[in-house]
């Protein structure tokens, strides 16, 4: 088993929490893992990414080679496109559909969607809306992670365990809400996956 994934977003969106949950799940599953993060300068509203590698064999490089990622998981649609060179030809792009507008020259949303449509396998969801429907915009990232669960190569139950571990300190209610969010994301991905 091997899953290479790139987490992408804008500084401050919280891709590292998603990475931490997957990391916990991988640890419980007994997998090898490497995760390269970007800290510092780029966190001020700039583009951020993290390379996450999971495998049942030891992993050499912290960075994913070009054309080898099974998955790009993005909290922002244009950011999902930035890392396409790392995606396998038949890899999945799972992304939040709503743009994060903090630059003056952001492309027209239709252009972004068109680029996404050119790819063979995508899921684009408005995870903020799904999160709000659950009663808290704050769980949008967990919805996003839920949407990626079919493509991670780790059992769904393990990801649930990861969510429990990461949010344990914040109380029972928060854990439950995040488990719901995870489920909502997974369901929505099944309904909206292309193909």
């Amino acid at each position: 088993m091997k899953t290479d994934l790139i987490l992408a977003g804008v500084g401050g969106q919280g891709i590292l929490t998603i990475a931490a949950i997957i990391g916990q799940a991988a640890l419980l599953e007994g997998l090898y893992m490497k995760q390269a993060e970007v800290h510092g300068m780029s966190q001020r509203g700039g583009d951020v990414q993290s390379n996450l590698r999971l495998s049942d064999r030891p992993i050499a490089s912290d960075l994913i080679p070009r054309g080898q990622a099974e998955l790009i998981l993005a909290l922002e649609p244009m950011e999902s496109l930035r890392y396409l060179p790392f995606l396998k030809q038949d890899g999945w792009v799972v992304t939040h559909s709503q743009p994060y507008l903090n630059i003056p020259n952001y492309p027209a949303p239709e252009q972004v969607n068109e680029e996404l449509r050119k790819l063979p396998r995508t899921v684009a969801l408005d995870v903020e809306k799904i999160a709000k429907d659950l009663g808290s915009a704050q769980v949008a990232n967990t919805v996003m992670l839920g949407a990626a669960t079919p493509f991670l190569g780790i059992g769904y139950h393990r990801i649930e365990n990861g969510v429990e571990r990461i949010f344990r300190g914040k109380g029972e209610a928060i854990v439950r809400l995040n488990l719901q969010a995870l489920r909502a994301g997974a369901d929505a991905a099944q309904a909206h996956r292309n193909p």
């Binding site: 500084g11 509203g45 060179p85 995606l87 030809q89």
Partner: peptide, 30 residues
């Protein structure tokens, strides 16, 4: 990177997507 080292070793290049032209830089900001 694993790719620059691969090139130095004369490894063949795997097919990959280009970054679409519409993708703009997103520099950090105050």
């Amino acid at each position: 990177t694993p790719d620059s080292v691969g090139r130095a070793l004369g490894k063949s290049i795997v097919a990959y997507y280009d970054v679409p032209e519409i993708v703009k830089q997103r520099p950090p900001a105050l």
